[in-house]
Design a protein around this nucleic acid. Structure first.
Lengths: 230, 230
DNA sequence: TCCTGTGAATTCGTTCACAGCC
DNA sequence: GGCTGTGAACGAATTCACAGGA
């Protein structure tokens, strides 16, 4: 059966499968089984088959999935068949690191604008772009058709900048500031919070040290599923 | 009923509650209800109560929770009552940004070492530390009792460095490289993958544009739960 | 024979709803 | 009266297990 409503959990795994498949294609592999893909992705093969079945029936029984076909189907499902423009707001250490990170462009996310409040930064060139003042955000979002705003500003200004992004018409925000943002229902929001990651690791680290006696599970976190140490 | 086995999903939310509570304490708030905490955390109050109940019964019926008490209990549960030492391996754009990010130390995660393979970087000072060659990792992990390794190396060397961290005795790894790592069961692993975040946003962005007609849900992702735009 | 696709069973997480205590 | 703590109901995600096509 084809599509309609891909579950949240599946959406999060599709990019992982995609990366593996692109890698496979680069090695001239033409076909892959759910078992092999599952091993690379660190999940169980039934999950892979169920996930892929939400895209439609693109496998061949007794054989597996055609790598190129799957790449195409996943890309289509994720909306990666065309590029998206992004803007980075906040060019501190993290914002600059993001601006220079090549992995975005490579995966179809064009960094179309860099913005900051700091008058010393505005006007400078960075990663091939001129840094704009954050007050230009409304204009830039419209002119460059920015779909995704990347927020790398300090905690205290995060909400204000987010509000301006939303007002300017941005539909998706990736927030690196360690704060909870409020956005209207029609805006998608994801956050990356380094201290939360460390604190979660701390929990398991502590538990391991506290026990230091029983054999316990060691793979933790919805983001941390991993394959066998094979 | 007291503790034993805090669910994964709860562990991920405790740091969020903790941040809000610390903020509250800074504003001299002494007591908070599950309803208020839930509103700040962007979740529902039953979830807050259930989450907190895994730590024990520290609330007062008719009143709420004592802020300082909760801070203490959550910190204890997360293993934050003592500091943890971390090491950052890979000092490209991202590694440098992490090295200079103040939020770690502030939350009890001491950056005890910076390592890289690049001979030009080794020996330089950065964020108050001398950059060491990655070959020193075994010695440093032992001498500095590094608990958490932060991996900001390129994809191709991530597995190798992870293996060396594990061999050196590190129990937790936070991986920023866009690759799936294999580690033994007794090692905790979490990853932060920027392109996955963007691709998930792309999915919802595309769906929104494709529909552009029905009123649909806008808040997505296990990391992206958010409160009302109140 | 091999591997997909998927109902059914199970596990995990969330939400409801209320008894019990302040 | 207000708010916690928690069984019970519900829903989502995972895994099992196998029917059915290549």
């Amino acid at each position: 059966m084809s599509a309609r409503a891909i579950p949240e959990a599946t959406v999060q795994r599709l990019p992982v499968y995609l990366r593996i498949l692109v890698d496979m294609a680069g090695r001239s592999t033409t076909t892959i089984s759910s078992e092999a893909l599952a091993a690379s992705a660190g999940v169980n093969s039934a999950k892979v088959r169920k996930d892929l079945s939400f895209l439609g029936s693109y496998g061949t029984r007794g054989v597996g999935y055609d790598v190129d076909c799957l790449i195409h189907q996943i890309s289509r499902a994720l909306g990666l068949t065309h590029d998206w423009s992004t803007a980075i707001v906040g060019l501190g250490n993290l914002g600059q690191a993001l601006a220079h990170y090549g992995g975005f462009a490579q995966r179809g996310f064009r960094i179309a604008a860099l913005l900051d409040v700091d008058r010393d930064l505005v006007g400078q060139r960075m990663a091939g772009l001129e840094v704009l003042h954050v007050d230009e955000i409304e204009r830039v979002v419209k002119e460059e058709e920015i779909a995704i705003g990347i927020l790398a500003v300090p905690e205290r200004s995060a909400q204000e900048v987010a509000d301006r992004m939303v007002a300017a018409g941005i539909g998706s925000i990736l927030n690196f500031a360690p704060t909870l943002l409020s956005v209207p229902d029609h805006v998608s929001l994801r956050k990356v919070d380094l201290s939360i990651e460390l604190q979660v690791l701390s929990f398991y680290e502590q538990r391991r040290q506290a026990e230091a006696t029983l054999g316990e599970r060691g793979q933790h976190g919805e983001r941390g599923e991993q394959p066998e140490p094979t």
